[in-house]
């Protein structure tokens, strides 16, 4: 069996769908944050795959995946600061309880 670009892209799609499932179903804000990280990793895997199979001279996809990692670190830092802030104010982190901005 030969591993082609289709296998890597299918794995990336599967990880993306797992992340979306966690994002929709879980009510805990930490799990939602971790699901977002899984989705970002799926996108990164697709970028690196395309860099390997489509652009072996200038690996631009690898550079973009490094940028995605930096932005994911920023997103995790801000997200966790907000979550800890909400936890200190409300003493819970359920997604359903963050409804004060709903009209």
């Amino acid at each position: 069996m030969d591993i082609t670009i289709n296998h890597y892209l299918t794995l990336s799609a599967l990880l993306l769908c797992v992340g979306i499932y966690g994002l929709i179903t879980r009510n805990n804000a930490f799990r939602v944050l971790m699901s977002i990280e899984v989705m970002l990793n799926a996108a990164n895997l697709a970028f690196v795959t395309f860099a390997h199979y489509m652009d072996p001279l200038e690996v631009k996809g690898q550079i973009i995946s490094l940028f995605v990692m930096a932005i994911a670190a920023a997103e995790a830092a801000i997200g966790l600061a907000l979550l800890l802030l909400i936890y200190r104010n409300r003493l819970n982190i359920k997604m359903d309880s963050f409804t004060s901005m709903k009209w």
């Binding site: 990164n44 690196v48 390997h52």
Partner: peptide
């Protein structure tokens, strides 16, 4: 496996 050694190490260190 995709020959992206630097990205792999960054993945372990950062993620």
């Amino acid at each position: 496996m995709l020959n992206a050694n630097f990205v792999a190490i960054s993945q372990i260190l950062i993620y």
